[in-house]
Design a protein around this nucleic acid. Structure first.
Lengths: 120, 120
DNA sequence: GGTTTCGTCAACCAATCGGTTGAGAATTCG
DNA sequence: CGAATTCTCAACCGATTGGTTGACGAAACC
């Protein structure tokens, strides 16, 4: 499970981490700021941020203390592309299926073997 | 982790399951057909399909034997929308930041306090 | 009808996950 | 400098995950 896409999807599979991402769209924030609203310990949030960081969804300005957590857009694009790619392939298949069914209708109805336009 | 989005992301966090989804864009298939290319047992693939099904990414025509597994597009849309929503919010923030920086430049340069148009 | 093939359920196992507490390093503040 | 705050590392715990093997019910085929 070391590949980038698996890490990204796994990172967003947790509601707390998705909420962190959502809040980071309002602007960068420190760990303690991010941890404040939740009931869990700061260490737990620190762990969540580590997961997000390792997935490339988030970055830190400096390594040190109190340096704000920053949202990174690139990996989101990667996920969107994966999803859209296969969603579109699925839709394309349905369109082909529709075309085939329409053709069958045509042939059954009028027995017209000469179809000129086929938008494959 | 019962919410729909968590289940969907978790389902796609596994490379084998993503591969199953990818192959299903070529058309419906039975469990044994899907299981054939992998080294793992048929039971393992059956488990993977159960995960995908529970996440709503996949459906079965009939409950019974040999009924083909079918790709479901709806939940993909859900994921895309979530990702795109926050990606766009992040981008909007950068645009606002750019605007603020531009405004600061303006004010420093020309000291024009009357701004009429603010596309909040 | 009998056999074979297909798919799932059950029990088990090692590894990972999300959480805890405790300790410690480093930065900021008085 | 000394003290308080911020953040992370380490060890531990219960639950979940991805895999296995074995058994079994239900279609499909002869």
């Amino acid at each position: 499970m070391t590949d980038s896409l698996s890490q990204a999807f796994a990172a967003l599979a947790d509601p707390t981490r998705r909420d962190l991402v959502a809040r980071l769209t309002d602007g960068d924030a420190t760990v303690s700021q991010l941890a404040a609203p939740y009931q869990v310990s700061v260490q737990a949030i620190s762990k969540h941020l580590k997961v997000l960081e390792q997935a490339g969804l988030v970055s830190r300005a400096a390594a040190g203390h109190r340096s704000p957590v920053h949202l990174e857009a690139e990996v989101f694009d990667l996920m969107t592309k994966w999803i859209e790619r296969y969603r579109q392939r699925a839709e394309a298949r349905y369109r082909r299926l529709d075309a085939v069914l329409a053709q069958l209708d045509d042939e059954e109805a009028g027995h017209r073997p000469t179809r000129e336009e086929e938008t494959a």
